[in-house]
């Protein structure tokens, strides 16, 4: 039972990270119907920025939670800036183009960003400092949960509640929902669509950056390629839950996290990534609209 609980917890932690990234995919898809291939790269850039900032601060003799706070804030700012810029360069000129064009452009952007980081930094794995503080009070409760896992779960939960509130109750959230429903109609009632799309990219990128910092300090090493696999998995999560649906993305992420965790625990750890892809292929074949997604009726 202990082993089961360990795997369950591992799956929950994985799932939280996937959820943070998957939200970015699902929000962007909901609003402009584009698979933002470069989203995984935004997450990777967030992790790299955090690594660079925390290392510079550590060499300067700083330590403790202030490093975490500064590194995470800078990572969030830069990820948001990259998300915003990528949209302006690669997607905005293609709003009216056929569907294949922005998709190819997004793949191009993803390859570009990967190689940009690889050439500017390194292609090796870099050790990531463990920024997350140890929480001694967890032991006294007798919980079998590591402090970094605990922090990941809490941070994810808080981010998601904040996102929900933002989308439900703010003017920006309302504009986002309106644009997702019907872009032209939203424009007619006075929503600045371009700005709303930019906001969507920025919010998605912020969530990805949070995920990047958390997972990098949990696992302890990063390289330029982490964004690709994480991106595909988060996308799987988003599709599993029904792309475009925010609760769906979270649900899908947890299901994916548990699937991977239990499959590697009970079946074989060699095929860790295969399970995610098999799950993705299966969902798309059996239920392309996802668990919570609405199936779209094709009109002629």
């Amino acid at each position: 039972m202990d082993y089961f609980f360990e795997l369950f917890l591992g799956g929950l932690t994985r799932g939280s990270i996937y959820a943070l990234i998957a939200l970015g995919y699902t929000m962007v898809y909901g609003i402009i119907e584009l698979i933002n291939f470069a989203h995984g790269e935004i997450y990777m850039i967030g992790a790299f920025t955090a690594l660079i900032v925390s290392s510079v601060l550590a060499f300067a003799g700083m330590s403790g939670p202030s490093v975490l706070f500064l590194a995470a804030s800078v990572a969030i700012i830069y990820s948001a800036a990259y998300g915003f810029t990528v949209e302006k360069i690669a997607y905005k000129p293609l709003r009216q183009a056929p569907r294949l064009s922005p998709l190819i452009s997004a793949i191009g952007m993803s390859i570009f960003l990967q190689n940009y980081v690889m050439l500017a930094q390194t292609s090796d794995f870099l050790p990531f400092p463990s920024l997350l503080p140890e929480l001694p009070f967890l032991e006294s409760y007798g919980l079998k949960i590591g402090s970094s896992e605990f922090i990941i779960l809490v941070t994810t939960a808080v981010s998601m509640v904040l996102l929900m509130l933002l989308i439900k109750f703010t003017k920006m959230g309302k504009a986002m929902r309106a644009t997702a429903q019907d872009r032209n109609m939203a424009m007619l009632v006075g929503v600045d669509v371009n700005r709303t799309i930019s906001y969507t990219f920025i919010i998605g990128s912020i969530l990805a950056a949070i995920g990047g910092v958390l997972i990098a300090s949990h696992i302890g090493r990063i390289n330029f390629y982490i964004g690709f696999i994480a991106g595909i998995k988060a996308f799987t999560a988003a599709v599993l839950g029904g792309i475009g649906s925010i609760p769906g993305a979270v649900l899908g992420a947890f299901i994916l996290g548990w699937t991977e965790s239990f499959a590697t625990g009970y079946v074989s750890s060699d095929y860790e990534d295969v399970f995610a892809f098999v799950l993705l292929v299966l969902i798309l074949i059996i239920r392309p609209s996802g668990l919570l997604g609405r199936s779209t009726v094709q009109k002629v």
Binding site: P102, G108, N115
Partner: peptide, 18 residues
Amino acid sequence: YRMLLFGMIMVVMMIFRP
């Protein structure tokens, strides 16, 4: 810079000469 260039080509071609 080959892959960097490939990425750039894909973006630029899609925007200016799909």
